[in-house]
Nucleic acid binder design. Sequence first.
RNA 1: GGCAGGUUGCCCGAGCGGCCAAUGGGAGCGGACUGUAAAUCCGUCGGAGUAUUCCUUCGCAGGUUCGAAUCCUGCACCUGCCA
Length: 422
Amino acid sequence: MGVPIDPHLLDDLEWRGLIAHSTDLDALREAFSEGSIKFYVGFDPTAPSLHMGHLVQILTARRLQNAGHTPYALVGGATGMIGDPKEAGERTLNTLDTVKDWVERVRGQIEPFLSFEGPNAATMVNNYDWTASLSTIDFLRDIGKHFPVNRMLARDVVKSRLEAGISYTEFSYVLLQSMDFLNLHRDYGVTLQFGGSDQWGNLTAGVELIRRADGGKAHAIATPLMTRADGTKYGKTEGGALWLDPELMSPYAFYQFWLNVEDEKIGELLRVFTFLAREEIEALEAQTAEKPFLRAGQKALAEHVTALVHGAEETERIKAASAALFGGGDLSALSTPTLAAALREAGAITVAPGLGIVDLLVESGLVKSKGDARRTISEGGAYLNNVRVEDPDLVPGEADLIGGSWLVLRRGKKSFTGIEVK
RNA sequence: GGCAGGUUGCCCGAGCGGCCAAUGGGAGCGGACUGUAAAUCCGUCGGAGUAUUCCUUCGCAGGUUCGAAUCCUGCACCUGCCA
């Protein structure tokens, strides 16, 4: 209906490595070519914020919308009450209030990435709306009848849990997600669902339910799980997940994460997490291969992803802060406003004069206890104004204050905290 | 309902009366090497204290003992086998 469709969408997704699994790709290609199709991707509120893994889905949704297709972004007000089974073990159930709160936060994080105007405007849906009032009898008869338990038991996640145990609640999760797809298919004509590759079982179950229940035809694609070069999960390095919420992870730390990505992953991450064109990405990859020490790929990646999530203005401030803090040894060469701005970006606290170095380290949050502070100092990992601290009894004085009031405390190579003394 | 086994630090997993804040691996943290990379090597890894010191910790609550993560009793939860 007048929406220009990008005919190269599927090729682009494949080139970016975004299709880890799929149902019949040729059929999907045909569906894409016939006009704006309606697709959905779901997000369960299992935490107060989405993280890097969800960002893959969000950006993929945007790619599809940019190509002319119509997004339905689903937040799992119902499925979030249940929790999908994961290998690690049974989840702890959250209260309805918690889930409702998280639903709103998650919704707010998704919305900026999609367009809610025009002929292929996005729609937000919440599966709580059609699940909460569903009767058990209807659910068991209309949905449950289509799910052979022998097939459900054969799924990898379930199999891996049979020893340790899995509740009926989590075992049933796949029915709810499949029902979502069925309902969106019926009510809106949604014909494609995508999600992370760990969702593949849930995705295909939905496709199958649509076929069994309605004789309908639907598609599913799964995006790959992002891992580090050694195959381990991301997010362990910075002591937690890579949150999109600036309250949970400062934009500065977010930017630093991308800047520190391994060389081998640059191409992959640029393809998945940026909207840069193929030629630009290939040029950056070549640069990274030839002159890795310039870190051109990392810089571009960090800049683009941070701008997508936290905005261009914030990204500029972060870049300036990073340049100041990592620029060289002599911090006093910077102007005080520049330094202060950089430190506020990286994280800063205010303290009264007279505190010793051990207390300052604890106050700054760089270490978690005084013992940790002493240990760090004895290991040579504590720096005041870029000079290694040797004496744990050191008390910074007037002469140490940069611009009359600032101290720069650093732990290790990368963790800075600004301290304003007044 | 019966029988058997289990519950240890962020995770996995030893310990089975004192030498245990508790072996080992992973993760984390620091150092060296580098490029704010990877790999590697070294160190570190409950809290307070600059000391051979104290406090809290081995599912929960009691008990035995000079002394327990280790033995006993009860409770909770998990797993397996049998009904």
